[in-house]
Design a protein around this nucleic acid. Structure first.
Lengths: 134, 134
DNA sequence: TAAAATGCCCTACTAAAGTACCAGTTTGAG
DNA sequence: CTCAAACTGGTACTTTAGTAGGGCATTTTA
């Protein structure tokens, strides 16, 4: 980027209008950088590839969308189910997904209803029996 | 040098170029907002589990006394481990074994230490990975 | 037989998990 | 656009789980 260059150029002019120009330059740079960052991070949404995040090695493993849809388990819920099945606590799942623990609890609670279980250990068992997780 | 003078000058400049400074503040705010937005939109990215959990589907399944002894897991502890792995709560295990829930907790706590885990979900996973339970 | 180990149970906690209910925001389909 | 579903986050709980420490009786075993 030519940011560094531009900064250098401006420095020559800063002599008299130090405060205003400096502040303005900083402001503009930050604004541009901020907006650019925001937009850049905003578009990956569409480009997003639905690559199976699950790296389960288990040979022959398939998400089995049929059962997932049949049970009405959403994509988000499924992600959480996997992390839960890997032995993580709600807090750990929340941290890993950059979500609130409240959100995790909500999803898991809904998951329990859909899997018709009362505890996470049962949920994992159930999901395994149904072949929707490793 | 007149410190007072400098202060005076600064004050005048602030007043004079209030617009620029205001713009700068706005820009910075926007920049922060933009970055925040960008990060917010960034997090939903796929959360992946990189740790492949090699799980062997028993078939046959033998207690594998070798590992049990190696870990120092007693008969009673093993029984409880199985029930725990079947999704039962401590209370349910206690009822089924005609024992106090306190006893169950004690055994499970000792099991955790021997399996080097912190939660029952991990304990089940671990035990499965080591082939000591189905 | 004395010393371990095991099994059982307890109090008294702290920490997670789970439930119920609400509410704002996004998003996708019609 | 509009509606519904999905997603997110929250409060305020109740319930399980888990920890720390101890006591006491019954096997094992050195």
């Amino acid at each position: 980027m030519g940011v560094a260059l531009k900064l250098a150029e401006y420095r020559l002019m800063v002599v008299d209008h130090a405060v205003e120009l400096y502040g303005a330059v900083v402001a503009v740079i930050f604004a541009i950088a901020g907006i650019a960052a925001g937009q850049k991070l905003m578009k990956p949404k569409e480009v997003r590839v639905e690559v199976p995040v699950h790296i389960h090695i288990p040979a022959g493993y398939k998400p089995d969308d049929a059962k997932l849809e049949q049970l009405g388990i959403s994509k988000r819920e499924y992600e959480i189910l996997e992390l839960m099945a890997s032995g993580l606590s709600n807090q750990e799942i929340a941290s890993k997904m950059f979500l609130s623990i409240h959100t995790i609890k909500t999803h898991i609670s809904n998951l329990f209803a859909k899997l018709d279980v009362k505890r996470r250990t049962q949920a994992v068992l159930r999901a395994r029996e149904m072949g929707i997780i490793n």
